[in-house]
Computed example of a mutant assay.
Amino acid sequence: MLKVSVETEVIDLKTGISAKTGKPYNIREQEAWMYGYGRDGQPQKHPQKIKLTLDDEQEKGYPVGQYILDPASIYVDRFGQVAIRARLRVPAAAVPAQPKAA
């Protein structure tokens, strides 16, 4: 599992007009740090800064905290190639247990 650390809730907004469609666009990004792996498959010693592109329906960014990369981040794109769009989730160990019904 790839670990990701969000250290700020600041969201950067990129706006413009699409050259292809002529329509305006907004891209919201949030900075995070990913604890990745090298080409040799070994964990890297230091995290790397990444940008998370937020979905349109995400009103807010991710709260400060520790996450893992959700498996839903990996999909097949329109060209039949493997693609990744980072979506984060809280690790199961960090989610408080729900009380069991009697």
Rank of each mutant, 00 (worst) to 15 (best):
L52I: 03
Q30L: 01
G36Y: 05
I50P: 02
S18I: 10
V10R: 05
P63T: 15
L54C: 01
Y67H: 13
K45H: 11
T53M: 09
I17Y: 09
Y62V: 00
Y62F: 07
E57D: 15
Q48F: 05
R39E: 14
H46R: 09
I27V: 13
D70C: 11
D40Y: 10
L54W: 02
G41P: 05
P43G: 02
D55H: 14
G41W: 01
L52E: 02
I68W: 08
L13D: 08
Q44I: 06
T8Y: 02
L69Q: 14
Q48P: 04
P63F: 14
D12P: 07
R39K: 15
I27W: 08
Q42K: 14
Q44H: 09
Q30P: 02
P43T: 01
H46K: 14
W33T: 02
N26S: 14
R39W: 09
E57Y: 14
V10K: 04
K20T: 08
K51L: 11
Q48I: 11
I27A: 07
A19F: 04
S18D: 11
P71R: 06
G41R: 02
V10S: 08
I11S: 07
E29Q: 08
K60H: 10
E57M: 11
H46P: 01
A19S: 13
I68K: 15
L69D: 09
L54Q: 04
Q42N: 13
K51A: 13
I50A: 01
I50D: 00
T8H: 03
G16P: 15
N26R: 15
K14M: 08
D70T: 11
K60Q: 10
L54Y: 05
I11H: 06
L69E: 13
K60G: 00
D55T: 06
G41E: 05
Q42L: 12
A32N: 03
T53W: 10
A72I: 13
Y62C: 01
W33R: 10
L54H: 06
Q30C: 00
D12T: 08
T15D: 12
Q58H: 07
I27M: 03
E57A: 15
W33E: 03
P43C: 03
Y67F: 07
I11E: 04
S18V: 06
K14H: 15
S18E: 12
P71M: 03
A72D: 15
Q66A: 12
K20F: 15
G36W: 04
E9H: 01
Y25K: 08
E59R: 03
Q44R: 08
A19Q: 13
Y37R: 03
G22P: 05
I50H: 01
P47M: 06
G65E: 06
R28N: 03
D40T: 11
K49F: 10
E31M: 05
L54A: 04
Q66T: 15
I27C: 08
G22A: 12
K49G: 07
K14F: 14
A72S: 14
T8L: 01
Y25I: 11
G65P: 07
P63H: 15
G61N: 05
L54V: 04
S18Q: 10
Y25Q: 13
T53L: 10
Q58R: 06
E29C: 08
E57F: 10
Y35T: 04
E29R: 15
D40I: 09
E29V: 09
K14I: 10
E31K: 02
G38E: 06
Q58T: 04
K14E: 11
I11Q: 05
V10T: 10
D12L: 07
E9F: 01
